[in-house]
């Protein structure tokens, strides 16, 4: 079961591991990777937050989480052409929320009683459908997407510039992790979602509609997915169909697993850790051309899979999670 005590202890382990990693990287002179990793990892963390939210409430890994974000990007692209950027962002998030709502109504709800693996495959179907629609709409061409903040040299840490756009991402993610933490421990609605994830029958008996909670959760997760996309992707300048699924879903999944799948702070910390590990892997001599483990072009992808496997084998409950 694991009471408050063991939860605290897991959190301490997570923080301890992070601090150890930071110190280690500074000692071996990889502090640049630390900063690059933090900025990259924040995006993973935000997608992972949505994954953890859905997993917490529906017990399913949501393959469509990435595409909630890509759809938001297309809406941002369309609305931004003529009109206010911030209104376009709001429109993009609304579109993501709408897609989450539709997914819950049309796919999740009819499969409420079905085995979770069926639902898992169904969410993959939603992602494929979304990518199909995006291809039909935009061909395979990359679309440009503008940044909200253009200044790049305001902050420099360890010789690495953190763009204002990235700063926005980091601040938003940290704020979200805190707000969601409060939401799930302090509000009736948040407590109800936790309760329903474990005891749906009892939840109905106290007067809460489990189905309505499910709608709410999917909309919230989809908006988070949208937010991750509209903040993280503009730094890259452009995007194409399936952008969030191909670039972010697997690292985010690894981050969520690392964080224990249901833990929101875990998803946050896991995302940052994956970002750091990835950037170390890309810059470490071992993986570079001529290095012993050189695989041209893919070290960062490879390392994510390695981490995922190691975590699944060695500590399946994640760094911050509790043993089932």
């Amino acid at each position: 079961m694991g009471g408050l005590f063991s939860e605290r202890r897991s959190l301490l382990i997570g923080i301890g591991a992070t601090v150890a990693l930071v110190v280690f990287l500074i000692v071996v002179g990889e502090e640049k990777s630390l900063v690059i990793g933090l900025t990259q990892g924040s995006a993973y963390g935000m997608v992972a937050l949505g994954l953890a939210l859905i997993y917490k409430s529906s017990g399913v890994f949501n393959f469509a989480q990435g595409e909630f974000g890509t759809v938001a990007l297309y809406v941002l692209y369309l609305l931004d052409i003529k009109g206010n950027y911030w209104l376009a962002i709001i429109g993009a998030l609304a579109a993501a929320g709408l897609m989450g709502f539709a997914t819950e109504r049309l796919v999740v709800r009819p499969l409420f009683e079905a085995p979770r693996v069926i639902l898992l495959v169904a969410t993959a179907g939603v992602a494929l459908l979304a990518i199909g629609v995006e291809l039909w709409f935009a061909d395979a061409q990359a679309k440009p997407v503008a940044k909200a903040f253009s200044r790049n040299d305001r902050i420099t840490v360890f010789d690495v510039q953190i763009t204002d756009q990235r700063l926005w991402l980091i601040v938003t993610l940290a704020a979200l992790a805190v707000l969601l933490g409060l939401f799930f421990t302090r509000t009736n609605l948040g407590l109800a979602i936790i309760g329903a994830s474990q005891e749906p029958t009892a939840t109905e008996l106290v007067g809460i509609s489990v189905r309505r909670l499910s709608s709410f959760t999917w909309v919230l997760a989809a908006v988070l997915g949208g937010l991750a996309a509209v903040i993280a992707i503009p730094d890259l300048g452009s995007f194409g169909p399936g952008a969030m699924t191909s670039n972010y879903l697997i690292p985010a999944f690894t981050a969520a697993v690392l964080g224990g799948m249901t833990s929101l702070p875990g998803a946050f910390v896991g995302g940052v850790l994956i970002g750091i590990i990835q950037s170390v892997a890309t810059s470490a001599p071992l993986f570079q051309d001529g290095g012993e483990l050189a695989i041209p072009g893919v070290p960062s992808t490879l390392i994510v899979f390695v981490v995922l496997l190691v975590v699944l084998v060695a500590r399946p409950q994640g760094l911050l999670g509790k043993r089932a």
């Binding site: 009736n188 407590l191 309760g195 474990q198 005891e199 029958t201 939840t203 106290v206 007067g207």
Partner: peptide
């Protein structure tokens, strides 16, 4: 019984008063 295992006694009661 079907109490909410992850929630505290207080929060179980709080959800009981949902209506």
């Amino acid at each position: 019984r079907r109490v909410f295992p992850a929630l505290s006694v207080s929060n179980n009661l709080r959800l009981g008063s949902w209506t």
